[in-house]
Write a protein that binds this DNA or RNA. Structure first.
Lengths: 349, 349
DNA sequence: TTGAAAGCGCTAACAC
DNA sequence: GTGTTAGCGCTTTCAA
C-alpha cells in the first residue's frame, strides 16, 4: 500500500499551514504566487493526492458519476452502449470524475439501486441510457432533485425538456440512408422496423417515410415491423421482396434486422420473383454500425458515441457547477444536444 | 436530494446510542436480539444507509473495485471484455462492492492511473485484464501490496503463482475444437493463430497441436500466424486451403480470423484446387463466441465470462477479508481458477 | 451489553 | 495572505 500522504505532510514540507495547502488546491487565486509554487512543489515531491472520502465528507460531493452497464441483450446492438460507456469513462476522467457501475434488470430495480447508491456512495450524478415512453426513472430523480443526464431523449413528454439529455438524430440518419438509396436510383425503398411505440424505432421510421414522401414515393405498404432478431429480419425482408411490387432496397432500424435482410437478399432463389431478378442486387442499410455490420459488409449508420458521451459529461458538469450559481444565470436549465449519425457505406448498399 | 439519514437518527429513533447502531451493523452478534431488532426496524423505517465516505475514513476500506474498460479494439473481440465487465459488476454488487471504471492506453498509463486512484478513491482492489509476458502492472501492484486479481494467467512467470488469477483454459478449448473435427472425420486440420509470443495465442495453438499429434497427425505446415484482422484471416486461410495437401478444417484463435477464413471457404472458386472440391465443405471454428460468430453461424468456443467474473470477486473477497486473519491460516495465498470454455456448434463446423 | 470520547483527512468559516 | 477552529458520519478504543 502506498504510504498515505496527507495535507498536513504537505503543509509541513512546504512550511505553511494545512489550510493554505487546501487553498492552493481549491482556490489557488487566493494564495500568493510564491507560496503556491512552494506548496505545489511539495505536493509533487510527496506525491500527494486529495483523499476523496475526506473531501466528500466535507463538501458532500463524491466526484462519482453512476451509470448502468447493460446485460448485452442480443449481442449485436449491445456493443453500442459499451462504446458509449468507454467514452463516458474517458470524458468523465478528463473532467475529474470517475464512473461507478451498476446493473439493473428493469426500471424498478434501477430505482432501487439509485436509492442504494445515493445512501452509500453518493454519486454526484447519474447518466441514464435507454430512455423510453413513461420512463419512471427520470421522474424519480427529478422528484429528488438529483442531477442527471440521459443518453436518449425524453420520449413522449409533451412540452419542454424536463431534463438535460443527449441523443443521436435517428430520423436524420434513416433520412440520409433513404436519400443515399434514392440517389443510387432506387424508388421502392422498404423499411424494416420495430413495432410502433418505441421512441427510437418510430423516430427512425419517420425519417425514412418523410424522405420517401418528399421524393414522391408513397411509403404505404413498404414497411414491416418486427422484433429485433436476425431471423425476424430475414422473414420480414422476404415479405417485402416477394410482394407483387417488391422493394429494391431496405433501410433497417438495426444491424440485427439488416443482417437478417441480407441473408434473404443473398440467399439464392429466396428473393424477388424471377422476372425482377435481372436488376442490381437489393441494397440493405442497417443502423448502429456494429462490429457485425463491419464484418459482414453492411452499410450502416454510425452513431458518434464518444461525442455523445463527451456531451453528457459537459452537460453534467454544467449542471453540477451551475448548482452554486444564482438560479437563472446559467442559461437553459435543461439543455440538450442532438448529434448526427453518419452513413458508412459498404458492399451491401 | 434524498434527506440524509445518519446513524444518529437511527439511534434516536430506536432509543439507543449511536454505537449500538454501529454494532448492529458491523458486529451484530454482540448486540442483544431485541435491541438489534429494534435498530434494524429503525434502519428500515428511516431508509438508512451507511455513508461510505465516513466509513471509509474510519476503516480505510472503500468497497470499490477498480477495473479498466477497453477501447474495443477491433470491435469483434471487444465484446468479450464487456461481458466480463457486466458479470464483474453484478458479482461485485452481490459481495457488497461497486466497480469503478478507468481507461488507459497502455501499461504505463494504467500504472499512473493506479497511483491516481489509490491516492484519491482508494479502491480496495483492482481487477486486471489482458495479462501478458513481462506485465509491469502486476509487479507494480505486488510491490505495493495492493490486493488484485487478474483475468488472465501470469504468463511467462517461471514458478509458482505470484498473484491470484482467473483464466479460461484456451488450450483445452482448441483441443476440444480439434477433437470435434477429428470426430467428424477431418484429419488435415489447420490452425490460424497469432504470431508466437502472446501467451493466449500460444496456449490456444498448443491445444490444437497437442490434439493433432495425439491423433497421429503431424501439425507441421498446418498452421499460419497472422495479426487479428478479418482480411488477415481470409488470406491465411487461402494459403492453407490452396496448398498441395490442403486443410479440410480450420481452428482459429479468434472469431475475427474465423470470419476471414469463412470468407475464403465460402467464396466460390477461391478454396481448394478443383480435384479436392468434391468433399464436404471446409469446417471453420472460431474462438470467443462473439456476436459476429452467432450472427454469421460460426462454430466457436464460448468463454464462461460471468463465471470468470464471479471467480474474480470470490478470490478478491477472500484476499480482502483474509487480510485480517493470522497469516498462513487462509490457505493458498495466491489461489487461481482455470475455467473451461465450451464449444458452440453452428453451421460452419 | 451499552455509552462516551476520539479522530480518520478534509474544507468552510472566521480570526489574525 | 495565512493560521485556527470546528465538524462532516462513522468506527474503534475504553469505561460503565
Amino acid at each position: 500500500m502506498p504510504e498515505k500522504v496527507t495535507i498536513a505532510d504537505v503543509a509541513r514540507h512546504a512550511g505553511v499551514s494545512r489550510q493554505t495547502v487546501s487553498n492552493v488546491l481549491n482556490t489557488p487565486e487566493v494564495v500568493r504566487e510564491e507560496t503556491r509554487r512552494r506548496v505545489l512543489d511539495a505536493v509533487e515531491e510527496l506525491g500527494y493526492r486529495v483523499n476523496q472520502a475526506a473531501r466528500q465528507m466535507r463538501t458532500g460531493r463524491s466526484r462519482l458519476i453512476a451509470t448502468r452497464i447493460e446485460p448485452d441483450r442480443d449481442g449485436i446492438n449491445g456493443s453500442v452502449l459499451d462504446r458509449f460507456l468507454h467514452g463516458l469513462t474517458e470524458s468523465a476522467a478528463r473532467a475529474g470524475y470517475r464512473v461507478l457501475l451498476y446493473t439493473a434488470d428493469d426500471d424498478t430495480a434501477e430505482i432501487a439501486t439509485f436509492a442504494d447508491l445515493l445512501g452509500a456512495y453518493e454519486p454526484d450524478a447519474f447518466v441514464l441510457t435507454g430512455t423510453h415512453h413513461g420512463d419512471i426513472r427520470t421522474s424519480w430523480l427529478l422528484d429528488r432533485g438529483m442531477p442527471f443526464v440521459t443518453f436518449g431523449r425524453p420520449w413522449g413528454v409533451p412540452d419542454g425538456t424536463p431534463h438535460a439529455w443527449v441523443d443521436v438524430d435517428g430520423a436524420a440518419g434513416t433520412a440520409a440512408a433513404t436519400r443515399h438509396l434514392l440517389d443510387a436510383g432506387h424508388r421502392r425503398i422498404g423499411f424494416l422496423g420495430w413495432p410502433a411505440g418505441s421512441g427510437v424505432g418510430d423516430d427512425r421510421r419517420e425519417g425514412w417515410a418523410r424522405t420517401l414522401r418528399a421524393a414522391g414515393v408513397d411509403p404505404a405498404g413498404l414497411d414491416r415491423a418486427t422484433s429485433d432478431g436476425v431471423d425476424d429480419g430475414e422473414a420480414a425482408a422476404r415479405e417485402l421482396l416477394e410482394s407483387d411490387d417488391p422493394a429494391t432496397a431496405l433501410v433497417c432500424v438495426s444491424d440485427s434486422l439488416a443482417l437478417g435482410a441480407l441473408h434473404t437478399v443473398r440467399s439464392p432463389g429466396a428473393a424477388a420473383p424471377a422476372e425482377h431478378r435481372a436488376g442490381p442486387p437489393v441494397a440493405v442499410i442497417g443502423f448502429d454500425d456494429t462490429p457485425v455490420a463491419k464484418a459482414v459488409g453492411i452499410t450502416s449508420l454510425s452513431q458518434p458515441l464518444a461525442e455523445a458521451a463527451a456531451s453528457c459529461v459537459t452537460l453534467l458538469t454544467r449542471l453540477l457547477d451551475g448548482d452554486s450559481r444564482p438560479s437563472g444565470s446559467s442559461g437553459d436549465p435543461h439543455p440538450h444536444v442532438l448529434l448526427q449519425p453518419s452513413l458508412v457505406v459498404r458492399r451491401s448498399g
